[in-house]
Amino acid sequence: MQNLKSSSTKSKGALLLIGAAAFLILSAVLNICLGASGVSLGALWHALLEGPGTSKAARILWYVRLPRTAASLLAGAGLAVSGAVIQKVLANNLASPGIIGINAGAGLAVAACCAFGTYAVWAVAGASFLGAMTATFLVVIVARKSNASRTTVVLGGVAVTACLNAVTETIVTMVPDAALASVDFRVGGFSSVNQTRLLPAAILILAGIAVVCMLTNELDVLSLGDDTAHALGLRVARMRNTMLTLAALLAGASVSFAGVLGFVGLIVPHMARRIIGNDSGRLIPFCALLGGGFVTICDLASRLIFAPYELPAGILMSFLGGPFFIWLLLKRKDKQP
């Protein structure tokens, strides 16, 4: 019996993945080469070959543009994969990391951190990660208590988010300094990223994406529906909670150094599905590549549009994400009664 999988389908998928990888590399190269400082490409190349040094080009390359580019690549990849996983697990194309409490949890932790006068970069990053994970943990507990159905995960997420946001607003009302100090986190961006802050999150994001890539068949079987997935031998509730935890890990680690980057976890999985289809084996790596490239291009645009001033990347993404979301809603209205 001949294998039905056509080689043209396989090669098309491979070509698209190569194209996405090329986009990622191009965005990274542009983000490293272009900026408002006026440093020439030759000087940057020289600084790259010589390693970290004290020249202007070396300082800009090694301490600003490389960490910043790495951060935007990692945050984009982490948030996009997180969004794709959440949308698959909840069978809801309008779901994103925010739906399982990531942003609310991280926002509360950062506001609390600032309210206690702890402004150190590492402390804010750690707090936002722990806040994101704690919020997701609460959502997963609520879901588990009610058999982890898709609906209860979403409703649990809405309830937990509402509670956490209420506490955050109370904190920033009582301690106005906390509101000011957490502005950078709330709008999202990469201007304060450095290697120390990035390294632990980078390890978590890369490991998280690798694990998700190994579980793409589980992710697809889960999306067939609880009964069918169970009949195929999958421990449905356990796998759903595992996937949500992985998604939280990816988004939480991204938020810890990039702040709240609105809509990345929503836009990129949609773009990726339209281009490469819904098969997780291709979708997840494609999302990682496309997400990394997309956020890096947004970061580049945010630095160049009003140069020498910088628009936080999170604001630019919301400018793009808002209209996209409206388009998505209108498109759904066309299709559904």
């Binding site: 067939l224 069918t228 599905r273 819904n278």
Partner: peptide, 14 residues
Amino acid sequence: YLPQSRNVPDITVE
């Protein structure tokens, strides 16, 4: 086991 109600997943037959 073929359950009574089944999803229509966004994937190919194969």
